[in-house]
Each structure stands twice: as C-alpha cells, then as structure tokens.
Design a protein around this nucleic acid. Structure first.
Length: 728
DNA sequence: AGCACGCCGACT
DNA sequence: GTCGGCGTGCTC
C-alpha cells in the first residue's frame, strides 16, 4: 500500500496522509489534488510512505497528482522545511506560500508558449530611423532585436511598452521578424554582454577575490561606501557566472528599486533571459517568470524577499543588495528573513552569497569579522568624493516651519547656483499633531495608540497605522476652541514653507502620498533627470538606491526623534538611514554637502556620521550589544499576542511564561509587556521576549514551548512567534 | 484557517 | 415553534 504525506495551507503543525497508489518518487514536490474536510484543495507531496499511523478507515485517496509542472526540487523542499522548523511556522503554510498563487489553485494551467522573435534578413535591412515618426513601438522592437542576434523572448518584448502584441503581429506579416518556437530549455547559448565601465583597482580586487572562491559556499559582505560602485561588482560577477552557464538570484529590498536595476541588467546582458519576481506582478507574470526560473531558462532572477524560494536548477550565486534593509524581513505570517534564508540556501547549494551594503547590519558586520564570512571593502567613490557632513545646532534657534537660518541660507545659495537640493524629513503629511492650545487636546486615532496626522492637501486627519481618516474638525471637540494648531513638521508643511520662502524655485515633494498615482514616481524621476527641479522634499523613499547625479546639498530635519527610542536597533537604523541620504549628495563631478539639524550635535552618533566613520560607530554599538546580551551576541524571539482587551493578551502571555519557566535551559524569559503600539486597528497587543546566548538552546526551548502553548489555546487571543524580531 | 455541530435567546 | 448567536472540535 502506498501513501503520500501532503502539506496543506492550514495552520496545523502536521502533514496529512493520503492513499496514492500511483505515486512514484519523482512526485515528491509535486502538487496533488485532494479531498480535505468537505472541500477539494491543492497540497504539495512532501514524502512517500509505505505505512501510516492512522487507522486506514480515516485515510482518503489523492484525487490526482498534478504533473503539469515540474516538482519542487529537493533543495527548495529542504529550505522550506528549515524555514518551518526555524521560524516555528506550520510547514503547510510555508510550502504553499512559496508557490505562485496560480499553482495554489486547482484550475488547470494555461502554460506559456516559450516563443522568441528575431529579425529576418529583410528586417535586418530596415533602418529603424527611417520609419515614420509615430511608429514608436515598431522602432522600439527593431532596436531591441538588432542588439540580440539570438532573438528576444516574447515576454521581454511585451514588457517594453504597451501595444507590443499587435505590432509583433503586423511586423511578422510584413516579414520583418519571425517567431521561433522552442522547447523551454533549449534557449541557452553563450550570452552576449555589453561591456561596462572599467573597474577601479579596488573594485577589480573585490571582484577577483570573490571570483577565486566562487565554487563553494562562502558568504561575502561587500561593504562599500555610498557611490563606490557595488552594482558594477554585481554585474562583473554575474557576467562570469553567466559565462559558466549558471543562474544568479539577485534579491533587492523593494519593488521601487527593481525598474532601474532591471533596465541596467537587460542593457548589459541583452541575450540573457532576466525575470522579475515580486508582488507587483500579475499572477500570470509571476507564474511565467517562476516557471522560467524553474526550468533553467532564466539566467537572472531579480526579486524581492519572496524570490528566495524560487527553484533554480543551475544556481551559481545569490546576491542580496542592501542587505541591512528591514524589508527583507517579513512582518506577518511566516516572519522570515530572506537575507538569512539566502545564506541557508547558498549553503545547501554550495554557492557563494554576496551581501552588499554601505551600512551593513551589525549581525552581518559581526559575522564578517569571524572566519565564516569574508569581507570585501570599497573605500572610494567612483569619480567623486564623499560629501562633507555638518551638524547644525538648533537648540535655542528660531526655526521657520522646522528650517533653521543656516539651512535656508544653504538652500538659497544652492538654488542660486542652479544645483539640486534635497530636504529630508522622515514624516509625510503636513504636521504629525493637531493641537488645541486652550485645553491641550490632540487629535488621536480611535482604533490605535497614535496621533492622527494632519494632511492639508485633502484636508483630512489620517492614521498612518490603520488607515482611519476623518475631516479636520472646525473647533476643538473637547472645549470648543476654534483655534487648532498644527504641531511639528511633515513633508507637506516643509514643501509649503519652501514654496513661500523661495517663490521662484521649482519644488517637488516625493513621498508615499505624492507618488501613489500610477506612474507618478517615474514621471518625477524624469523631471529630476531633466533638471526640472531645484529642491526636492521627501521621505525615506528618496534615499533608497536612487542616483541623482546633480544633487549637491542634502538637508536633514527632525533626525533627533529616533535618537532615544526604546528599540535597541534605533541608533543602528538612524545611522544607516542618514548615511544613505547623505550618500545621495555629491556624485559625478560636483562636491556635495550635507546639513543635519539637531539639538545634540555632540552626540556620538552624529560625530561618527560626520567623520563617515561606520566602523567606529559599529564597534561602539557592538560593544554595547555584547554587554547587554543583545544580537548579534544573543538570539531573541518574541511571543506576540493580540486580543480585544490588553489584559487578556497579557494574561495569556503570563500563563505562557509560567509554563515556559520549567523548560527554560540557558534561556531567559522576560515579563510580558504591552507592545510599543499597545492598540492597533482596534486590537490590543502585548509581547513576551525570550533571549538566549545560544541559538540552539533557544530553538530547543521554542519547540517544546510551542507544543505546550498549542494545547492551551485561548480562542480570544491571536498569537504568533517572531524569531529574530527586528522591531521590538 | 474554515467549517461543521450544538445548545440557548428573540422573532415570523 | 424556528432562525441564528458564537463556543468547541476536527480536518489525513
């Protein structure tokens, strides 16, 4: 009798046994259609078995093993198992979350025809420039096909512009181009390569040392200051791997960053099939790209954290760009760190993994000082020097909408020189607080422990945590005073102030609100590139990986707010964030200057920042972390609980702690406390921290502890475990 | 999670 | 007399 053990998308820590007479070992990793309760669902076969622990009467039969796409390979299955064990999350949910949504459903798949187009003899003789001016799409296609003698995948062409499909049809009809239909795996050929800039000695050295060790598992921290050309290193490494017929997995923090990098990769490697994998794709694109990665056709997979689970038969290297970025950690459900999982995956596949950053996480920086991780360092900017960073003391200063005289003067001069300036505030909206001067009332969210943020362009108060919004009251709801005042600065307020102070300057605000409209961000980037802007006002969005070549002045206001936060990672993040914004200044041939307004110019963080001294600052923080037994010198887990009443959540955690104490060996359980934001979207939240100097002791404890917690579930409380939490 | 079963309050 | 509230238990 043969059985299969199936992973299902249910929050249960078990696999489910089914009868499957026709199952063979090649079916492990395949999807199966099965009856579950009174529904029919899709699961993934994790194991074959000859026996089962259940009475045979309870075993049902698999309806169909779905052999339409190849099975998940062994290394992905073991990675998913690892994830489930390490993050203590039900295996079924982990496995199903790693599949593209289309594959989680039972409907038959329409599999994409892999078709590429190439120029015919006739087409080769057509001069794109000789086409009528309005034939932009045809010109684009011809231009693209001219670069690649091998032809270009239809999917890639379709991505070039809207209206590609009909153009392909008519161009085929005219005999300019022809379609080549081929079996999925036959498209490999020696990839063409457009040479990039000549590498600096330092860059070349980094590339050489990584290349020397590229046949085994080895993590590399690529620590390169902003503007030092880390991307060129990735490209050089990618080129050598493609030449050896290997696939590269390139992970980036956010979708925002992919279009630029994607364009660069496509330009440099015109014959290599590159696929993107992120949540911004349609289900269909996601499935197609995933399949191209899985069957080995895609040479480069560029994706966000979810791409770390993609099957890659010829994987040769994993690159994690902006390794320190918090977006690599998923904050709900399976709370995994794609950066950490990338390390595990590289290890099982015996390939190198490159972790790039100008401001590495202390975890990785510390790791790179041991013998299990190498470090390659870039200390010089390509064709530029680092900007001068200067603190502007604001204590006792009179500020105009948050801006000091020094800042305004610098902006004035920079605008006069026709150079680009950036004012950075990490807060969108007009003002973070609406305040009644008569009775000290402030507008706060009914559902969260948070103040409502004043948005003046649509005259509403908004909660940035739960999305609640309402009209701005005409008078104080508590005392009737009609004189309500906005307190503090947001991007809109600074934009308004600058417009007033510099009436002739072209000012552009960039934050989540101003870029919400589709394509808005692209248009804004074009405006900046075309030098149609004098002053940019923006949030974090601006600091992540964007190059603004003419930017020479960066002003930072309200940086102090996170200086004395209760989160032990706050200063690491502040230093990193400020280094990243500062790094936007002074590229190409123009010197840059950075002004940071602060009440505490003598603070060691700012002192290190002004000296561009990441190393010194990191060493100070590491010493503190070691003394306090915090990561990377200890390992943490957080049991989070939420309930309608805080007392319920706290009581649950208290009971959990009581049950845990007897199990705790080399593990410390702290007292349950309310979360940083005790109420969020109407739910009250608390958390319990578990700490250990030993990762394995922590793991052993968590496994035993969760077993107990599951048997004492309180249905009023929703709880979850966060291993290696980033936010406390 | 989802969905059944099951036992107590206000309605056609 | 029933419709439906959500407590409890189960899914191979």
């Amino acid at each position: 009798m043969s059985f299969v053990r199936v992973a299902l998308d249910v929050p249960l820590r078990t696999l489910f046994d089914y009868r499957a007479a026709d199952a063979v070992s090649d079916d492990v990793g395949r999807r199966a259609l099965i009856p579950f309760g009174r529904k029919i669902v899709v699961g993934v076969i994790m194991e074959l078995a000859n026996t089962t622990d259940l009475p045979l009467t309870r075993i049902r039969s698999v309806l169909r093993i779905m052999r339409d796409v190849p099975p998940l390979p062994a290394d992905v299955l073991s990675l998913l198992r690892f994830c489930s064990d390490y993050y203590h999350h039900p295996l079924g949910e982990v496995v199903m979350a790693a599949l593209p949504t289309r594959l989680r459903r039972r409907h038959a798949l329409k599999l994409p025809a892999v078709r590429r187009y190439r120029l015919t003899e006739h087409g080769l003789g057509i001069d794109p420039m000789a086409l009528p001016g309005r034939a932009t799409v045809q010109r684009e296609i011809l231009g693209r096909l001219r670069v690649s003698a091998l032809g270009v995948d239809e999917q890639i062409l379709r991505g070039l512009a809207p209206g590609i499909a009909p153009a392909l049809k008519s161009m085929s009809a005219m005999g300019w181009i022809e379609a080549v239909v081929e079996a999925p795996d036959s498209s490999r050929a020696i990839p063409g390569l457009i040479p990039g800039p000549v590498l600096s000695a330092e860059q070349q050295q980094a590339v050489d040392s990584i290349r020397r060790e590229s046949d085994r598992y080895l993590p590399w921290l690529l620590h390169g200051i902003t503007g030092s050309g880390k991307t060129e290193i990735y490209l050089a490494l990618i080129a050598s791997l493609l030449a050896r017929d290997r696939q590269i997995l390139l992970l980036v923090p956010e979708i925002n960053l992919t279009p630029q990098l994607e364009a660069l990769l496509r330009a440099r490697f015109p014959d290599t099939r590159l696929v993107a994998l992120h949540s911004g794709l349609s289900e269909r694109e996601r499935l197609n790209n995933w399949l191209l990665a899985q069957n080995g056709t895609a040479g480069i997979v560029l994706g966000t954290r979810l791409a770390v689970f993609t099957p890659l038969p010829r994987l040769g290297m994993i690159i994690v760009d902006e390794e320190h970025d918090a977006s690599f950690k998923q904050m709900e459900g399976l709370r995994y760190s794609a950066r950490d999982i990338a390390l595990v995956r590289a290890k099982t596949r015996k390939v190198p993994v490159i972790l790039g950053s100008a401001t590495p996480s202390l975890e990785i920086y510390h790791l790179a000082h041991g013998d299990r991780c190498r470090m390659a360092t870039l200390t010089q900017r390509v064709n530029a020097v680092l900007p001068a960073i200067v603190c502007v003391a604001t204590r006792g200063e009179k500020l105009i909408d948050g801006l000091s005289q020094t800042m305004l003067k610098a902006l004035h001069e920079n605008v006069g020189r026709k150079e680009l300036s950036l004012v950075f505030i990490n807060r969108r909206g007009y003002a973070p607080v609406l305040y009644c001067a008569a009775c000290a009332w402030t507008a706060s969210c009914q559902r969260c422990t948070a103040k409502l943020v004043l948005h003046l362009n649509d005259t509403r108060l908004r909660c940035h945590h739960c999305g609640f919004q309402e009209k701005i009251p005409a008078a104080c709801p508590r005392c009737g005073n009609a004189d309500l005042a906005p307190l503090g600065q947001g991007t809109q307020r600074v934009e308004t102030a600058l417009t007033r102070i510099f009436p002739d300057a072209r000012i552009l605000r960039i934050d989540r609100d101003s870029t919400r409209r589709k394509n808005a961000w692209n248009q804004m980037r074009d405006r900046i590139r075309d030098r149609d802007v004098d002053i940019l006002v923006g949030t974090q969005m601006l600091s992540k990986g964007h190059d603004f070549p003419q930017l020479t002045l960066v002003g930072v206001i309200n940086a102090d707010s996170s200086l004395y936060s209760s989160d032990f990672r706050a200063s690491e993040r502040l230093f990193g964030g400020l280094t990243q914004v500062a790094g936007r200044a002074g590229r190409a041939d123009l010197a840059g200057k950075v002004l940071i307004q602060t009440e505490f110019p003598a603070h060691p963080l700012y002192q290190s920042l002004c000296r561009h001294d990441y190393r010194g600052f990191a060493q100070t923080l590491l010493k503190e972390r070691e003394q306090a037994a915090l990561p990377p010198f200890a390992y943490l887990a957080l049991l989070r609980a939420e309930a309608p009443k805080l007392e319920t959540a706290l009581a649950f955690l208290k009971r959990a702690a009581d049950r845990g104490h007897s199990l705790a060996k080399h593990v410390t359980l702290y007292d349950p406390v309310p979360a940083i934001m005790p109420r969020l979207a109407g739910q009250e939240r608390a958390q319990l921290m578990v700490q250990s100097r030993s990762r394995s002791a922590l793991q052993v404890f968590l496994a035993a502890w969760l077993g107990i917690l599951e048997n004492h579930a309180d249905r009023r409380v929703r709880w979850s475990l966060d291993v290696d939490p980033l936010d406390l």
